[in-house]
């Protein structure tokens, strides 16, 4: 649910990075944080375990600039990817305006990708959302690794409706901002339509 505040002339939108464990959701946010000017970003919060696995969520507030006199602020969240943190994932999806699904392109993670995508759909449905009616993009991460699935296969299993998709290597930043821009655009276009 986006929040338009006339008093402070601000609009806030919530974007959630979803995907299987260790696919690189937190790494996406860390790269965005590192490469964003200080005046455009807030503090990044990571609620993680001692071994740096996301326990509840990561949070990064970003200010993108003004549209029609309103400051646009995007709140980026990640979910914990590990299967058993499902209760936490559901909480973070509340009030979401746009979703980035980060897939792990390695062959052996295809099952985990499919399971996570199914889980995303189910968790959204519980809250009355339809994934394919929300602003939604897919990132095929870890493209730098040697044992990756062919793009056609990733597409066939993970992107049947042909939403915008991006190849990425979040560690080095390839595709990270392209993904962010695409989802931010879709969210703003969605606001324009005022359909939700």
């Amino acid at each position: 649910m986006s929040f338009i505040n006339y008093a402070s002339r601000e609009i806030n939108c919530k974007i959630v990075y979803y995907g299987p464990g260790l696919c690189g959701k937190t790494t996406n946010l860390q790269y965005i944080y590192q490469k964003t000017a200080n005046e455009s970003k807030g503090k990044m919060i990571s609620l993680a375990t001692e071994s740096e696995r996301t326990l509840f969520f990561d949070f990064l507030p970003l200010a993108l600039g003004e549209v029609r006199g309103f400051k646009t602020r995007f709140h980026l969240y990640t979910v914990p990817g590990q299967v058993f943190y499902d209760a936490s994932r559901k909480l973070i999806l509340k009030g979401v305006d746009g979703i980035v699904f980060v897939a792990d392109s390695q062959e052996e993670r295809m099952d985990a990708n499919i399971e996570s995508l199914e889980n995303l759909k189910e968790n959204l449905e519980e809250q009355g959302y339809d994934l394919y009616k929300l602003p939604f993009v897919i990132q095929y991460n870890k493209q730098d690794l040697p044992n990756i699935s062919p793009i056609e296969e990733l597409r066939r299993f993970l992107n049947p409706t042909k939403v915008p998709e991006f190849k990425a290597c979040a560690m080095s930043g390839v595709g990270v901002f392209e993904t962010l821009k695409a989802i931010a655009k879709l969210v703003l276009m969605d606001l324009k339509k005022g359909t939700r």
Partner: peptide, 19 residues
């Protein structure tokens, strides 16, 4: 929806300019 929505009139260019 347009009445409460200051974004109803935004253009693709407005959005592109943000980036």
């Amino acid at each position: 929806p347009g009445r409460a929505n200051p974004f109803a009139e935004i253009t693709d260019d407005d959005i592109d300019n943000l980036f």
